[in-house]
Design a protein around this nucleic acid. Structure first.
Lengths: 219, 219
DNA sequence: TAGTGTGAATTTCTTCACAGCG
DNA sequence: CGCTGTGAAGAAATTCACACTA
């Protein structure tokens, strides 16, 4: 029997939307809604119905024609596809403002990603605990990764050490990295890297604002 | 004479990469490097040379065959395209952990996006200042937007008030919004909305981790 | 009959490959 | 010669439109 993932591969664009569906479906379940149509789901998720149906079709044919999707069952399938309920340990590297905010951010643990390690290179922070988690020194990275079974690393260091810290976490065997440092870091092919770039987001918004303003002025 | 933006439109995917080029070029300028090839730039930005050349070609033909691009001139063109040096005022709505971290985050002001307003609905916070900026009540949104010439709003409220706050900021005339709240918000067509979804990022990483693990096990 | 599931059409993005120029 | 600029090819993502069925 082939493993779960041996189906027709799910496109990246669809993968990126699974968490949105997950969230929308969770809300529906909370409300006690048992059935949902692609149009309703699209509305909640800020998408269109065709895209929702196409996306869900990659998971399998879980809908009922003329009716829609059963909320609980679809949610279960998405959970399974996302590999939730595995409790992947998260390490946050760098405990400046952003790192601490992320450590405090309840949203992670709730979604099955417990913050299991905090690391910094500031000796005055090392040894103290933050939000119930002990702060370790970045030099002890390798040991902490093993001891806490870290599966995902969040880089929240200043830009100038981000690459160095990334190299260390990769060497320690972590293959999933989320980079918040305002710089580009590179990783080997077998490592999945995503980034959250706050300054870039504002610049992108600025671009469209600028452009739309020009268009308005040109009329 | 047509306005700057009346050229062949820049694709969204390219726009999203302009900030990366901006950052890489800034680093080069800092180092005193005057010329750069598409291959070097690609290397810094974590992209490939063909994409870099294609992207830059949408801005105009600013390179020199056989040589490369002049760092300062290209940077100037990207700045202009991004509409930087306009100092678009940013308002942060919601001053929990995340909102405060963002307010402290130096990266914004540095890139020409001064944090000009902070808003919350907690009366004990209103009236105090944070990081040199006075905290106003969310009820005073409309006035603050005008007084501080807010162009971009960052939503950092809890999920359950995000839509309400978004509606208010749209009503106040802001057309660029960056949503950090862990929920989908909808806006009218003329408003540009981007989102940063922390929990989703982890779920996406979890998906690939899960999948790659399965593949490894299947061998 | 209402709404799914999906081939086909379309659009967007990426990559190729090479002519053209400094 | 070396590297840009760009048509053309290819891949990916989105949207359309409708057969199908519970």
């Amino acid at each position: 029997m082939p493993p779960v993932s041996a189906r027709r591969p799910i496109p990246d664009a669809t993968v990126a939307r699974l968490p949105i569906y997950h969230r929308s479906l969770s809300q529906l379940r909370e409300k006690g809604t048992s059935k949902v149509s692609s149009a309703q789901l699209a509305n909640m998720a800020g998408l269109n119905a065709a895209k929702v149906r196409k996306d869900l079709s990659y998971l399998g044919s879980y809908g009922t024609r003329g009716v829609g999707y059963e909320v609980k069952y679809l949610l279960f399938q998405i959970d399974r596809e996302l590999g939730l309920a595995k409790d992947l340990g998260v390490a946050i590297l760098g405990l400046g403002n952003l790192g601490r905010a992320l450590a405090n951010y309840g949203g992670f643990g709730d979604s099955g990603f417990p913050v299991a390690a905090l690391l910094d290179n500031d000796q005055t922070k090392v040894g103290t605990t933050y939000n119930g988690v002990k702060i370790s020194h970045l030099n002890d990275l390798a040991g902490v990764v093993v001891a806490e079974r870290i599966a995902i690393a969040i880089i929240a260091t200043p830009a100038h050490v981000a690459q160095e810290v990334t190299d260390q976490i990769v060497a320690a065997g972590v293959t999933s990295i989320l980079n918040f440092a305002p710089t580009t870091v590179t990783v080997p092919d077998h490592v999945t890297l995503r980034k959250v770039d706050l300054a870039s987001e504002l610049q992108i918004l600025g671009f469209y604002q600028h452009r739309d303003t020009d268009i308005a002025e040109a009329s």
